[in-house]
């Protein structure tokens, strides 16, 4: 009995304050969680909406689509269907990721309604080399522009070429071939898999 009392005397402060901090955290979380959630969806819709200007709202496609990423893992991707004012499909958008030069690159990719042409990509997060690899993050930069209107099919990376010509050949950023290749690889992995999955579900004809 005295042992129990000793234990209580030593640790009551720790136990009581754990309880108080627990309540404090729960309150902070309850107050801020809706806003955090909204921030995340807002960022996605802002990027996706910029690529698909006709789309006024985005609806998730059920069920999620399983994509086998380049490292052999299977990832569940939530694909969003962008709807225009009349409720017709204006395009598709999804978030995807892959290994870049120094860290993971997370992208939002937009594709047109018939899944034939890319509407471009936006960067959710990346940590590429400043001055070189981070050029992929410039909205409307020469690298991002090459993807707007490019075929939603297998893309290849070339070291030299004409970036203003929109086709399946993507010209790499000088000094950042690895980063450029990473972006092309991510797109190749996800776009092809999602196209065939959507076809299987009968959402594309």
């Amino acid at each position: 009995m005295s042992k129990l009392r000793f234990f209580w005397e030593q640790s009551w402060l720790l136990l009581v304050s754990s309880l108080i901090f627990g309540v404090l955290l729960a309150m902070a979380d309850a107050a801020l969680a809706p806003r955090i959630k909204r921030n995340e969806t807002e960022k996605f819709t802002r990027l996706a909406g910029g690529m698909l200007p006709e789309a006024v709202r985005f609806e998730p496609v059920e069920p999620k689509i399983a994509v086998t990423a380049s490292n052999g893992k299977t990832v569940e991707v939530e694909v969003y269907r962008g709807l225009d004012e009349q409720g017709r499909t204006a395009g598709w958008a999804f978030a995807c990721e892959g290994g870049g030069f120094s860290d993971k690159i997370k992208l939002v990719v937009g594709v047109d309604g018939r899944f034939e042409k890319l509407a471009g990509f936006g960067v959710l997060s990346s940590n590429e080399t400043p001055g070189f690899g981070d050029k992929i993050t410039i909205p409307g930069g020469f690298f991002q522009k090459q993807f707007v209107g490019a075929p939603a099919d297998k893309l290849t990376l070339v070291k030299a070429g004409r970036p203003e010509q929109i086709d399946a050949e993507i010209v790499a950023i000088t000094g950042a071939t690895v980063t450029s290749q990473a972006v092309v690889d991510i797109l190749n992995t996800y776009v092809l898999a999602i196209r065939s999955a959507l076809k299987e579900q009968g959402l594309l004809n």
Binding site: L13, A28, L32
Partner: peptide, 24 residues
């Protein structure tokens, strides 16, 4: 139990700061 108490206090406030930044 001093150090444990400090760590607990700091971790709780850091979580609050983190949530706040995520929100605003």
């Amino acid at each position: 139990l001093r150090i444990l108490m400090f760590t607990l206090t700091i971790a709780a406030f850091v979580t609050i700061a983190d949530l706040f930044l995520k929100a605003y």
